[in-house]
Structures are given as C-alpha cells and as structure tokens.
C-alpha cells in the first residue's frame, strides 16, 4: 500500500499544491487504494495488485493539461518545501520537547548551584558538606550543559521551518485555532511560573528572618524554585512560539510568490531603518548637541522621540506603497 502512496506522491511532487490539487491527489489515492484492496480480496498477490493499480493510473500530463496547471519550477521546488500535516506535527512536538529540555537544563544548572549553596549552609552540621556540594554542582552542570548542546543541535534540524514554505489554507486555519486554544495553557503556565518565582522568595526570607533554616539553604531552595518556574516559561513559550513561526512562514500556495516577495521587501525596509535611519539620527543628535552645546543638551534628546514617531510613519508609507 505504501508503494502506491509513494507513487502518487512522486507523480504529484512537481504539481503546485493548491486546495484543488491536494483534493485531487487525495481522491486519486483513495481510488487506487480501494482498487488495490479489492484486487487483494479477489486473491491477487500484492505485486499483481500494485502493478494493475499503477498501470491504471494513466498519464498525469493529460490531466494537468486539461486542468490548465503548469508544473512547479525546479527552483521553487528546491527552495521552498511544502509542509503537510506530518511535518507540522513534527515541528510542534519537537519545539515542545526542546522547550521542556532547555527548561530542564536551566533547572539542572540552578539546582546544581542551589544545591552547592544549600550544602555550604549546612557546613556546621557536617564537615563534608562543601565537597558533596561541589560534586553535586558538577554533576548537575554536566546534565544541564549536555541538555543545552543536544537541544541546540536538534533546533538546527528545524531550519526548514524558519524559511517560507507552502501551507494549505485549511491547515493554516486549523493551526490558528490550535494556537488560540493554546493561549489559555500559555497564560496558566506563565501564572504558574511567575508564582513559583515569587514563592521562591519564601525559603530565603525564612532563612534570613527566622532560625528555622540557615540563610544559604533558603537561597539554594529559592534557586531550585526559580528553575522550576523557568521550565513553565520555556515549555509553553516554545509551543506557543512554534505556532507563530508556522503561521508566519507558511504561505498560501495561491499567492506564494507575492507573499515571499512582500516579506523580502519588508525585511529590506527594516534593514534600512535599522542600519541607516537610526544611525543618522544618532549622528545628528551628537553633532547638533556638540555644535550648539550648552543648554541644547537638555532637550536635544527629543529627536529620539520624534525619530520613533517618524519610524512608524515611514513604515506605513512603505506598506501602502507596496499595495
């Protein structure tokens, strides 16, 4: 059965993906699979069935010509992949995992440092405490750094998602809904993370103001609590951000070329503003202030406020110009 799917995928590889061609591919594949199943039920061998089904596929050129579809240019095919459901799910899952593990890496390092500090606080109770603390720190440091390196490498695999790609409109709608639904989880996670960070002050305060625990133990516990809070931020933040990345880089197949071009233009405008516009303003600020001198310094900073206001204007002028 997989052979049939591979065959159809291969044939459709150079066909531009639109709602229409996607449905066409789904329909044809469903037909072929039905035919295959029927042949198998009738007692054909797998090879025979596949042979018949593929022979009865016909000629894609005939169909494309009839539908007035021209094949994708080689460039676009190589430069811009098409993300389908599997690819999207993979990205979302991987981003979640990365977020979680980066968070755990931070927690691990904070736990190592916190552990060392806490054990230093216990020095009066048993002598070997600093040594144990050091071993503790090193072990957790290794785990944390290993997590960072591994996840950093994994993130590099996701490069394809940071460039424009083709995303079908119904898949986009689905993603938008999912992101909206995720907003609640994000809010809960942030509240949880912030609460943990605020709560983390309690052990330190307990240590500083009471005799219940040594101050250093309080500080150690605080770091661990903060680390736990960070996990909440990095996990939910990464998942939410994953949706944003997909929705920004995923382009509608019908207007793919224009969208990519428009984005390139926007980037160019940002570049001009950042690399030329703001430096000029800085130069004017210093030049004018030094030349005029004296009390002019007191209010020459206004140029930055004006510059900021003007930046918005310039961008919107470029935008309307684009349209």
């Amino acid at each position: 059965m997989k052979i049939i799917k591979d065959y159809v995928d291969q044939v459709f590889k150079t066909v531009p993906l639109t709602e229409e061609t996607n449905q066409l591919r789904t329909d044809i594949l469903a037909n072929m699979e039905d035919k295959y199943n029927e042949l198998i039920d009738a007692g054909a061998s797998e090879h025979e069935a596949i042979g018949v089904v593929i022979a009865e596929f016909g000629n894609i050129e005939e169909l494309l010509e009839e539908m007035g579809i021209s094949r994708l240019s080689k460039e676009r095919r190589e430069q811009y992949p098409t993300m389908e459901e599997e690819g999207i799910d993979y990205f979302l899952q991987t981003k979640g995992t990365i977020g979680l593990r980066i968070g755990l890496g931070v927690l691990s390092i904070l736990a190592g440092v916190g552990g060392l500090i806490a054990l230093l606080g216990l020095q009066n109770f048993f002598q070997a405490a600093p040594l144990i603390g050091l071993v503790f720190l090193l072990a957790f440091l290794v785990v944390g750094i290993a997590l960072f390196i591994l996840e950093g490498m994994r993130a590099a695999d996701l490069k394809a998602y940071h460039k424009p790609f083709v995303l079908l409109p119904d898949l986009r709608e689905h993603l938008e809904e999912q992101q909206k639904a995720y907003k609640k989880s994000l809010a809960i996670s942030i509240v949880l993370g912030v609460s943990l960070c605020i709560l983390s002050l309690t052990p330190m305060l307990l240590g500083a103001m009471t005799n219940l625990i040594p101050v250093l133990v309080g500080v150690g516990l605080m770091l661990i609590l903060i680390g736990t809070g960070v996990v909440c931020f990095t996990y939910s933040g990464n998942v939410y951000n994953a949706y944003t990345i997909l929705l920004t880089n995923g382009k509608n197949p019908n207007s793919f070329e224009e969208e990519v071009k428009a984005e390139a233009r926007r980037k160019r405008i940002d570049y001009i503003i950042e690399e030329i516009y703001w430096p000029i303003i800085v130069v004017i600020y210093f030049a004018a202030s030094f030349l005029i001198g004296g009390s002019f310094w007191a209010w020459s900073w206004v140029i930055f406020v004006l510059g900021g206001a003007l930046e918005g204007t310039i961008k919107s002028i470029f935008d309307t110009w684009d349209k």
Binding site: D27, I28, E56, G58, E62, L63, M67
Partner: peptide, 14 residues
C-alpha cells in the same frame, strides 16, 4: 473497458 484515473479526473474537470 477500464477508465484510467487521470482520464476520469480530466473528464470530471471538463
């Protein structure tokens, strides 16, 4: 007579 997939979908399109 067996109609081929692409022939059928060309016809549908037409």
């Amino acid at each position: 007579y067996t109609i081929k997939e692409t022939t059928m979908y060309s016809a549908f399109n037409r």
